[in-house]
Write a protein that binds this DNA or RNA. Structure first.
Length: 755
DNA sequence: AAAGTTACGTGTACGGCTAT
DNA sequence: ATAGCCGTACACGTAACTTT
């Protein structure tokens, strides 16, 4: 590549001054960070420069950056400067860091958006790093800006400061008059509202969402680095393999600085009008709950609030008319027995009553009676009151029943011994309670059994995990938690096979049909809101999965057309070669419904919910299918093995309702030719290709391919089985397992022999 | 009554992939 | 290098039940 021109150096210098200049008089010492990527070696590293040094010698630094670019490196700049002390502390551990969210300066006045072209045939393939026709791509980008993005932005009063063509798509830069909290500007507005607006508004203009473009929401990360304008995008090639150097150039420039509140109001108004703005505070959206706060708490109500709810959960089934008085006596007896101070007990007791009255399980006019029961208990001689007394004597429970309930109540109260609750003025609603003991905080989150234990803000009792804490979201100043921890649960609806079992009852043997959860086939699909990937689906298996999904959807539709949908449907799925063997698959429609409720696609209060279910299933973004292959016993415990297949939602939408042969054809067309014959595979065979079968295939292959007696060449063994349509990774794992289990060994490198 | 069994729901570990 | 997401495998807790 040619050395940088003077013009380019000046442009880059001016641009970076615009990016970092506003931070000049910040009270903290800041660094600006540049990152370099070598696409040939696939290395990536960050380099910090003191902000003041940088701004004091702009053209020199710009030239250095461009020289690096001319040495075929991709050049990126951090969208935010970083706090020097924090960055350096991180750098001691990670010498090549480009900074994290924690080290980034928390104020911003610019927003950068990437609008990328997805893989479009004949235009661009990101995975293969191929651009088919650079001229055409740039034209497409220009047209995308002029015909779709510009009008969409104008509608909400946005004029970008810059629009760049970056090689893979467009970069929009918005500039605001003042600094805004980075989390609000980047995440709440950029990622949450503006990205949504653009995606929808562009889609609206094109009548429906154009599949070939996407707003990259990952760029709203404080630690992001962005491709530097006027450098060249290095890394793409032509289909023939010729390296392309695509200059990042502006398509549009203005000097507009936007008023953040004004713009945000307009975007929110548009989203609101299109019913896309998330309702805040309804509790309907769990994500929003994280940003919501509980009411300020009265310290005296703390215990009542916490234990009341938990006790109420235990007592609820027993709080029935006719025995409520005695239950109140017994409960008060329990509180007294546990030596709970009267004031605390009062709060707890009162809360339980409130809950039950609120739920219609008790009546306001009875409140006096309940309180009298409580007061009598606490006035009486301790030896005269007990939990069990009223239940045994007045309600004639047996001892076993009394003890069972007592155990449950004790489990609730055990929390009190372990932790001392502390008061917060308000807590995020997702947090149930926080306890403190010598600077160690135990935090209970709603819906998660195990507490999280923090020292200050640092989580100490759990390793960094995806769901735990490692990728944090700031919930309030004191606690950071990971958003996803609360949303990743899959909501499965099960499709069950049936089988006939023989069971001994006394001396006779009884045969009956049961739902077989265990041995033959377990297929489940869930209505996952987010899963969109098709990545690891083996095509030939996708066919069988598609068949099953389509069938399940048909069933669901059948179910909703019926006035009184039964709890399960069955159908004869396939007749095998050996004769009349039917595979019966059952769809319990109540479980499908439950899944829909969990996903808040339907409301349990909706009388027509079952009738709406079928349509919703068809609209589900994606469907996840699982195949349960076998049970395994290890160390006396039963372990399960599952294999999952995912089908893209659009595909399902297309596939559902179409007859099975059609489905097979459609998927086959999309598949690679090499897989063609596998589409004729027998469903039975696919369903039974479990680990044991794979193991046998491995053993067989080693035997067959050991022609010279020196051992079968490992790669040949792998190829042999892969050719049958088995995922390569799985084959390699099976080989390792065979060796581990002592069936095979390596006489020398890359050769396999049987023992 | 205690110990064991079974089935199920839910949380975690970790690698692979993407992006810049 | 870092963030974020998915896919896979698996561990753990517990309810309901049976066996000892």
């Amino acid at each position: 590549m040619r050395p940088p021109t003077k013009d380019n150096i000046k442009l880059v210098a001016k641009y970076l001054e615009e990016v970092y200049g506003p931070y000049k008089d910040t009270d903290e010492e800041l660094l600006v960070v540049f990152a370099y990527q070598d696409p040939k070696k696939n290395t990536f590293w960050g380099e910090p420069v003191l902000l003041d040094d940088f701004l004091g010698d702009l053209e020199h630094h710009a030239e250095q950056l461009l020289i690096m670019n001319s040495n075929t490196l991709n050049i990126y700049y951090s969208i935010l400067p970083h706090v020097k002390s924090k960055f350096e502390a991180l750098r001691e551990k990670k010498p090549k860091t480009r900074g994290t969210r924690e080290t980034a300066y928390p104020k911003a006045k610019r927003l950068e958006l990437d609008v990328d072209f997805e893989n479009v045939e004949g235009l661009i393939n990101h995975g293969k790093k191929i651009i088919y026709d650079p001229q055409k791509l740039k034209l497409a980008a220009k047209s995308l800006w002029a015909s779709k993005i510009k009008p969409a932005l104008e509608e909400v009063g946005i004029t970008p400061r810059w629009v760049f063509y970056t090689g893979g798509g467009l970069k929009l830069v918005l500039e605001f008059t003042d600094f805004v909290d980075a989390a609000i500007l980047l995440r709440e507005f950029g990622k949450g509202e503006l990205a949504k607006y653009l995606t929808e508004a562009i889609g609206e203009q094109a009548k429906k969402k154009p599949p070939e473009i996407a707003v990259d929401t990952a760029v709203f990360d404080e630690a992001r680095v962005m491709r530097l304008p006027w450098t060249k995008n290095v890394g793409y090639t032509t289909p023939e393999g010729r390296r392309l150097y695509i200059p990042v150039e502006p398509l549009f420039e203005s000097d507009v600085q936007l008023d953040f509140e004004e713009v945000r109001t307009k975007v929110r108004a548009w989203l609101n009008a299109h019913n896309l703005l998330k309702e805040r505070g309804t509790g309907e959206n769990e994500e929003d709950d994280l940003e919501l706060w509980t009411e300020e708490e009265d310290p005296q109500e703390l215990k009542g609030e916490l234990f009341g709810k938990k006790f109420a959960d235990v007592l609820r089934p027993y709080w029935k008319e006719g025995q409520r008085h005695f239950m109140a006596l017994a409960f008060a007896g329990f509180l007294r027995e546990k030596k709970i101070p009267e004031e605390d007990a009062k709060a707890i007791f009162g809360k339980v009553l409130d809950i039950f009255i609120g739920e219609g399980l008790d009546e306001s006019k009875e409140v006096k009676d309940r309180w009298r029961a409580f007061e009598d208990t606490y006035k009486a001689n301790p030896s005269e009151v007990s939990f069990g007394g009223p239940l045994l004597e007045k309600l004639h429970w047996d001892v076993k029943e009394v003890n069972k309930l007592k155990k449950q109540l004790e489990r609730v109260w055990a929390l009190n011994k372990k932790y001392t609750p502390i008061q917060f003025t308000a807590l995020p609603k997702k947090i149930e309670r926080i306890y403190e003991d010598g600077g160690v905080y135990t935090v209970f989150f709603k819906g998660i059994k195990d507490p999280f234990i923090f020292e200050g803000t640092k989580l100490i009792d759990r390793k960094n995990t995806k769901y735990g804490i490692s990728y944090e979201k700031v919930v309030n100043k004191d606690f950071v938690i990971k958003l996803e921890a609360f949303f990743t649960q899959n909501n499965y609806a099960l499709i069950w096979p049936k089988k006939v079992v023989t069971v001994q009852r006394g001396k006779t043997f009884v045969q009956y049909e049961v739902i077989d959860n265990d041995t033959v086939l377990g297929i489940m699909f869930s209505l996952m809101k987010r899963a969109q990937h098709l990545a690891s689906t083996r095509d030939f298996e996708a066919v069988s999965a598609a068949r099953l999904v389509a069938k399940a959807l048909e069933l669901a539709e059948d179910a909703v057309q019926d006035d009184k949908p039964p709890t399960a449907y069955s159908f004869a799925y396939q007749v095998t070669e050996d004769g009349e063997r039917l595979v019966r698959v059952y769809v319990p429609s109540n479980l499908l419904l439950e899944a829909a409720y969990k996903l808040k696609l339907l409301k349990p209060s909706d009388m027509n919910a079952p009738q709406k279910l079928g349509q919703l299933l068809l609209k589900a973004k994606s469907i996840r299918l699982g195949r349960k292959l076998k049970n395994e016993r290890q160390g006396g415990k039963v372990k399960f093995a599952f294999y999952y297949y995912i089908i893209n939602g659009n595909a399902v939408e297309e596939l559902a309702g179409i007859n099975i042969e059609e489905i097979a054809k459609r998927v086959a067309v999309k598949a690679e030719e090499a897989f063609e014959d596998t589409f004729n595979f027998d469903l039975e065979e696919a369903l039974e290709l479990d680990d044991a079968t794979l193991h046998n295939a491995v053993i067989q292959a080693i035997k067959e391919l050991n022609k010279d007696g020196e051992g079968a060449p490992e790669e040949k063994v792998v190829k042999h089985i892969v050719a049958k349509g088995v995922n390569e990774d799985r084959v390699r794992k099976a080989i390792e397992k065979a060796i581990e289990d002592g069936y095979a060994y390596r006489p020398k490198e890359n050769r396999l022999k049987l023992t």
